[in-house]
Simulated scan of single mutants.
Amino acid sequence: MPHNDRIGALPKAELHLHIEGTLEPELALDLAQRNGVELPFADADQLRAAYRFENLQSFLDLYYALTVVLRTEADFTELAGAYLRRAAAQGVRHAEIFFDPQAHIHRGVELDTVVAGLQAALETAPGLGVSTRLIMCFLRDLSEADALAVFEAARPWFGTVITGIGLDSTEIGNPPAKFTDLFRRAREAGLHRVAHAGEEGPAANITDALDLLQAERVDHGVRCLEDPALVARLAAEQIPLTVCPLSNLRLRVVDTLADHPLPRMLAEGLLATVNSDDPAYFGGYVADNFHALADEPALGLEPETLRLLAANSFKASFLDEQTRAAYLAEVAAHRF
């Protein structure tokens, strides 16, 4: 981060970040070599060139293909550690990190291996000036029964390492109603709940995530603007939306960044935040998203709007009130 990068230095929380989506090409190739995995790419440049997507599914195909290089605790520790160092350098003071246990269990990696590896990295975060939470996400294209089996196996980590659950992967054809029992059990276990909705799926998925799953936060949610009644509800209840601008651009949710609905979302009074989603694949980490928004003249985002987005990120977090207040004071004191 350049010395004079006041946008990058703006204190911020990241609330929508898939740790598997931080797998940079160089690390993917290093881990493949370490673990004896053959990838169909000659070098990092060739792999990076494959990061061109037509839609969510084309991204997921590559995303899951590359997870095969993650085999050991050390691999997950290295992956998460690399993200935390990048995040700290981009002004992230708090990160609520997603991971996809089913993507690893289904290829023979034990749940203990994944969680222990991630936990080891998260224990280093305070030394970087970053607080963390870990959110276990479930793949909505798999069955609820499969999700429930993993959920029960993860109980020993609830409340200590794992503080919430989420729902991600292919939205079309996999509505929130499919996972009502999973989210009920999470509520009973005292876990926080988030869900991807309203990215490629309709605004109705957002409503169902709130009503059927009792999600506390909606990941993406950009299609809420298609339903005025939903917009009014989101604004009145200040339900957070974790928006990912560069992801929306790369996955063709919007044709150009100038078309992004974020300014309208803010104008409607929505508690929108800015996040990076899968930054290794989508062209940038969270400060890069802030920069891209600030550099797009058509969006008209002034420094005070960026400050609002940073403040929103802490308001939308699952931090305790005292810690949240301390971070919000840092945002208020920041000078561009």
Rank of each mutant, 00 (worst) to 15 (best):
E171N: 13
K178E: 01
A189Y: 10
F158K: 10
I206Q: 08
E200V: 15
E199W: 11
D208W: 04
A149Q: 14
L210H: 05
S131D: 15
F179R: 07
F183C: 08
E199P: 06
G201I: 02
D181N: 10
T180F: 01
L122T: 08
L148F: 11
A195E: 08
V150C: 15
R193T: 15
T132I: 02
G129E: 13
T207N: 04
R193Q: 15
D181K: 09
G173E: 01
A203N: 09
S131I: 03
V194A: 13
R185A: 12
N205M: 02
T163M: 00
C137T: 13
L122H: 04
V115W: 14
F151I: 15
I135L: 14
L118I: 00
G173C: 02
L191T: 10
D208S: 14
V114K: 02
T180Q: 14
F179H: 14
I206T: 07
R155M: 08
A121G: 01
E152L: 05
D141N: 03
A195F: 09
I135R: 06
T163P: 01
L122I: 02
T163S: 12
A147C: 03
E199F: 11
I135M: 03
L128K: 09
A116K: 11
G173N: 05
Q119D: 13
G173H: 06
D208M: 04
R133I: 05
Q119R: 10
F179I: 11
D168V: 14
L139W: 00
C137R: 09
D112N: 07
L122F: 10
T207D: 10
E200T: 15
L134I: 03
T163R: 12
H192F: 07
Q119G: 00
V194M: 13
T180I: 03
V194I: 14
G201N: 13
E152P: 02
K178W: 04
T132M: 00
L191C: 10
T160H: 06
D112K: 10
R193S: 13
A189P: 10
A121K: 02
A120F: 08
V194T: 14
